[in-house]
């Protein structure tokens, strides 16, 4: 395993990093007031997927486990919200998020026990098989889940006061967009703390050399299990946020090809970096939306991009950008 190129994620001080983030944040904040409504909604989708992608990347980028089953946790979050609306009549977004977190903790805890004992291809296939169990249940138990028709979800109440009564688009573009942005920032902050904590360092040690990590005294399975749960919970939160945007949840988001999209996002942005999956998710979302609008052969377009990307730019957008910047600064 020593031949694998392991890029140490540079630990510059978070304060300096914030300087880079400030202008981006400013753009994100003013966007609903200057851009078209469609653009804002697209970006909201992108931010939601970014939460899923950073969750996914805790496993791929930091723990070295490629999950092909993250659709399961995204779907669990989404269906938890839809079922809460259907059976309990809950409309509060905060309760939805709590419900999604509880549901995804439960599911990832069980799946995790099974999955973390394996690495490499077996881990990928096992996560995929388990996610397909949920997909087939959502698909077949139509009297609960609505089958392929899915479940409709009305606009929720935010913070107990803001409701989407009236113009739904305006609600999504303003109130809901800022809500997503807020949750997104909180998620990014939490993930930043996780990956820079001793726990996060231990995960990277496991990724780079499992045997050595074990010798140092890291309980590998338990750490992987916790990482698995954290990763799934972030993705579950993303699923819960996604439902009101989409207005509907269908079994498609549980299918393993949806997991493939999440993997695509992380690789597109660069899974060896912290911000890579965020950039990848937003860019992927734009690519897919425009490709779908432009041609029925959008899969072909995205497939070619993926193949070319993996062939020529395996470090993704952010990884390549960092390399170019480092080259410009010259050797230090």
């Amino acid at each position: 395993m020593s031949t694998v190129t392991t890029v140490v994620i540079p630990a510059r001080s978070p304060i300096r990093r914030l300087w880079y983030a400030a202008p981006v944040l400013a753009v994100l904040l003013v966007l609903p007031w200057v851009a078209e409504q469609y653009q804002t909604i697209l970006l909201a989708y992108g931010l939601v997927m970014a939460i899923a992608a950073i969750g996914f990347n805790l496993l791929l980028g930091y723990t070295g486990l490629l999950s092909f089953g993250h659709s399961a946790y995204f779907g669990v979050g989404a269906y938890a919200v839809a079922l809460m609306v259907k059976y309990l009549g809950v409309v509060s977004m905060e309760l939805h998020l709590l419900g999604a977190i509880a549901a995804s903790v439960l599911v990832t805890a069980i799946f995790g026990i099974a999955c973390v004992r394996y690495t490499r291809i077996f881990f990928s296939i096992l996560t995929m098989a388990l996610s397909q169990v949920l997909w087939s249940l959502a698909f077949k138990f139509f009297w609960v889940t609505g089958g392929t028709d899915g479940l409709r979800v009305p606009t929720p109440t935010l913070l107990g006061v803001v409701t989407g009564k009236g113009d739904k688009t305006a609600f999504l573009v303003h109130q809901y967009y800022y809500y997503v942005l807020g949750v997104f920032l909180v998620c990014v902050a939490i993930m930043w703390v996780i990956v820079n904590s001793p726990f996060g360092r231990a995960l990277q040690a496991i990724r780079d050399n499992e045997t050595r990590a074990q010798f140092v005294g890291i309980p590998i399975w338990r750490y992987r299990w916790v990482a698995f749960m954290l990763s799934g919970v972030f993705t579950g939160v993303a699923g819960a946020l996604w439902v009101p945007l989409n207005g509907l949840t269908t079994p498609d988001i549980l299918h393993w090809t949806f997991s493939g999209k999440i993997v695509f996002m992380a690789v597109l942005g660069g899974f060896r970096t912290f911000v890579g999956p965020i950039v990848g998710a937003v860019v992927y979302n734009y690519l897919e939306s425009y490709a779908v609008g432009y041609t029925v052969y959008w899969q072909l377009f995205l497939g070619v991009i993926l193949v070319v990307l993996v062939l020529s730019l395996p470090t993704g957008i952010v990884g390549t950008a960092e390399r170019l910047m480092a080259r410009r600064r010259g050797p230090r």
Partner: peptide, 20 residues
């Protein structure tokens, strides 16, 4: 190269053949 890349390139291929 690492297995992840093999899975990804065949996933891309899956999308391409689907549309072909």
């Amino acid at each position: 190269r690492a297995e992840e890349y093999q899975l990804l390139v065949t996933f891309g291929l899956l999308m391409i053949i689907d549309d072909v």
